[in-house]
Design a protein around this nucleic acid. Structure first.
Lengths: 342, 342
DNA sequence: TTGTATGCGTTATCAT
DNA sequence: ATGATAACGCATACAA
């Protein structure tokens, strides 16, 4: 290109990067016009090859189907774009063993850093130095043996909020329904936090944990029935009016919420009236189920933005100890967790 | 690297690309072991720079928040990965004017082709040759002046199915609720298809179209009330029992479905009993609203896969006239569209 | 069959 | 202040 402007390509490069500093105004404008005439723009790939960095950020997500992940992705991608970075997406499709492969593929394209929204388990477990020396930030799940920046919902505080809200509402039998923790840190943290809350409310409140798996809808049904039976003092459901009672479910995420809602429909039970409910995550359909589902809304967009921001700070040379950014959730009260009547 | 293996780098390159064909077995294994020892893998960027193609596919999506887009993206990304391509994602965040910018950014990284899931309107309207001569495939929305491969739901057939189903169920007053078409081809197609269906069922069935916008919930409420009023013969709603009647709504997509469901809740009307319903798109919460929402389920995954497949065929040199792949939707019958009693 | 040289589009280190 | 020139990591045309 440059030759067509009457200068050397080194000069063009200088114009692009150093502009005013070391270029005579006369020749600067000459390049400028030529650059406009040719509609020229530099090749990021060649720049990357030469510089060693690419202005590319690798984003690995465990499951693009998960709306939570997408919400985070959205925030992160926007922040990256605003900072002049482009996002390369790699979706694991829940095949956790491909995490290593994903990192290598992305690293091949010289991404400057990683945002990892993965579960942190599986065969290809990624340790710190699998990252080819590039900085990374973990979202939502901590990885064993990889101490980098970490951004997530403040699970403990969120769980405390949910429990407190239900206890305040008069609920005395609580069931925490979660996917099996299987080494996923966020699930483990929420479950532990639930335990802590329950002992804190001893002996007024009783809490149980139920691990729900897709295939076993019946088991969930039974758990809900048992919960309700306990709450209404051992009487059979058929014998009880629609009297207020103190049974409530906390769902560990939106997937679980969906399962619980399906179970409730199967059992012909109603949220709020028969069983109280608060769920983690606040999908847009939450207000449409029964009397509306109360939720803990995650600041997904901010989580994504924060993750991107952290990473970009590192890319700009920031060198401090790994940070933990725990963002607060927000309780959204709807009909499913109204105070227990009398 | 190669030097450490005792050969020239040209030989290494040959090993990578031509392998058996033009390499002595003796030196082939020598390279092979060295390649394993060093844990070496070629740099895709350098390859791209040299070859002119990158094994990268640019995927531009109008709004990553849209679950439909994500579902398609998922299918496409998987197909790309399986074919050895990596996806670079660019999210417009509903800022349609950035489409041109997105294409240029992606082209800068030498993507071999584009998958465009955008609305095909806005200032930066992209014509065929904005693509830097690279092939593209359009998903869901046709772009004016860009005739490339096109993959989408068969909107006409899907609408026919929905209408036929409702008419068969005894519904006589149909209201099609859609977002304003604003030059989006899929919306326009569905609306026209609705019109065609209605004239086909003349005079037995009456159809109306309502364009819904977020801000005007009240207008939607009124439209639903009017619909119901017409269906029950002009009598005021308060005077009518829960008798079966022939009013039904068709929602143009999941967003509209959400709005309609909210309106129904506001009006204290029930799907199936008061107003029949079929909606385009089949979100996972459809079965949980009221008696379950009947839907037209799109083969999103297959749409994505097909789009990727089309593009990759082009990349392999296929040169035929632009193709139109219209994939069939599937009617999922739930409680919201049961036959009208009496 | 293999090595050498050149080019891909930049940046950076020299000279000038 | 600007122009050659080498390097970035690979592919390829050509020479051996």
């Amino acid at each position: 290109m440059a030759v067509a402007a009457g200068v050397s390509k080194a000069t063009v490069s200088r114009f692009l990067n150093h502009r005013e500093r070391l270029l005579s105004p006369e020749i600067a404008t000459r390049v400028e016009t030529a650059i406009a005439a040719l509609g020229y723009s530099p090749s990021p790939m060649a720049q990357a090859l030469s510089r060693g960095r690419s202005r590319l950020i690798g984003l690995i997500v465990a499951d693009i189907t998960n709306p939570y992940s997408v919400a985070v992705l959205r925030g992160a991608e926007k922040a990256c774009q605003d900072a002049g970075y482009l996002v390369m997406l790699f979706n694991l499709g829940n095949d956790f063993n491909r995490e290593r492969e994903a990192i290598d593929a992305l690293a091949g394209y010289q991404v400057d850093g990683f945002i990892l929204n993965t579960l942190g388990r599986g065969a290809g477990l990624v340790d710190a130095d699998a990252l080819h020396g590039k900085p990374a930030v973990l979202v939502d799940s901590r990885h064993a043996g990889m101490h980098t920046d970490f951004v997530s919902l403040d699970n403990r505080a969120a769980m405390r909020t949910a429990c407190q809200h239900l206890v305040d509402g008069g609920y005395r039998e609580l069931l925490y329904v979660t996917e099996p923790s299987k080494g996923v840190s966020s699930r483990r943290e929420r479950t532990t936090a639930f335990g802590v809350c329950m002992t804190a409310h001893q002996p007024k409140v009783a809490g149980k944990v139920f691990e729900s798996v897709v295939e076993e809808g019946a088991a969930l049904d039974d758990a809900l029935l048992a919960l309700r039976t306990r709450a209404i003092g051992g009487r059979r459901i058929a014998d009880v009016d629609a009297e207020g009672n103190g049974a409530a479910v906390i769902a560990g995420n939106a997937v679980v919420t969906l399962r619980v809602a399906q179970a409730m429909a199967r059992l012909d039970l109603q949220f709020g009236r028969d069983i109280g409910f608060v769920g983690f995550d606040d999908p847009d359909w939450a207000s449409l189920i029964g009397p509306g589902l109360s939720t803990i809304s995650q600041p997904t967009d901010e989580i994504g933005r924060t993750a991107a921001k952290c990473l970009i700070e590192r890319l700009k040379g920031l060198d401090v100890a790994p940070r933990q950014l725990l963002l607060p959730g927000e309780l959204v009260v709807r009909g499913s967790s109204l105070s227990v009547a009398g």
